[in-house]
Simulated scan of single mutants.
Amino acid sequence: MDADRIALLLPEVYRRALVAGSPLDGILHVMAAQHAPVEGVLHRFPEVFDPYLTPDRFVTYLARWVDLLGWLEDEDGELATGNGRLRVLVAASAELARRRGTAAGLRTALTLALGVPGVEVDDLVPGPDDEPVPFLVRVTVPAEAAEHAELVERIVREEKPAHVVAEVVYLGGPPDGDG
């Protein structure tokens, strides 16, 4: 807010006494200078909540707001696949929350978190009699994401319904390379 706009907020008696170069004029200019940094922040305020524009140090804070804390490596807010992936997840958090507990939601969450295509979630896993096993889902993860097995396990644990058992299968063998 500049000095002229601040002057409009003053009582009429002060405005009539306002003369360029007077002590009152100086005070108004000092007030305007003191407001400038705060107004600059307020002008850029929407950027703070945009996960693609916010500073790196604030992405973790946004992730906590949208319930992604359990996906992070530690309290410092590191996602195993990087800050760029975390920004994508925060941006998609409303859609992820809407689809939480569904096969499509789990597939989307894993695909966005890992940054690799080809994640499959099968909620009709056939049993020995070729009938679907109730309350069982099979999550198939591409081999290139095997290095992030801990992240996959955390996301599956948090995103699947509580009454469902999930098995995670890595294409090309287990994540530790034993098969």
Score class of each variant (00 low, 15 high):
P37W: 09
L136S: 03
P11M: 07
V141P: 00
L124R: 15
D4E: 14
G179Y: 05
D122A: 14
D2A: 14
P134F: 05
G179R: 15
A63P: 07
K160V: 06
V164C: 09
P37D: 08
V59P: 01
P117Y: 04
E150T: 07
G70C: 11
A94H: 08
L89I: 04
E158M: 13
P132S: 06
R157N: 06
L18F: 03
V164I: 15
T81A: 11
A146D: 02
H163G: 01
L124A: 14
A162G: 09
A149P: 00
V19K: 11
D76V: 13
R100D: 02
H148C: 03
L110I: 09
L151D: 05
D123M: 10
L10Q: 07
L24W: 02
D50P: 01
K160H: 01
W71K: 10
V165Q: 10
R5E: 15
L171Q: 11
D130N: 06
R99F: 02
T111I: 01
L24V: 05
V156E: 00
G70D: 11
R154S: 07
A80Y: 01
P11F: 12
T111F: 07
P175C: 03
P132T: 05
A17V: 00
G40V: 13
A166K: 09
E12K: 12
L86H: 02
D50H: 08
V156A: 01
E158A: 14
E75S: 13
R44E: 15
P161K: 12
L72G: 06
P128E: 06
G101Q: 06
G82D: 05
V141H: 02
L72R: 03
D25M: 09
L42R: 15
G77D: 09
Y52G: 01
M31H: 11
L110E: 04
E75T: 12
G127A: 04
D122M: 10
L114F: 04
I27K: 10
R138M: 12
A36P: 12
V156P: 07
E39Y: 10
L96D: 11
P134N: 04
E131P: 00
E75D: 15
D122L: 13
P37H: 07
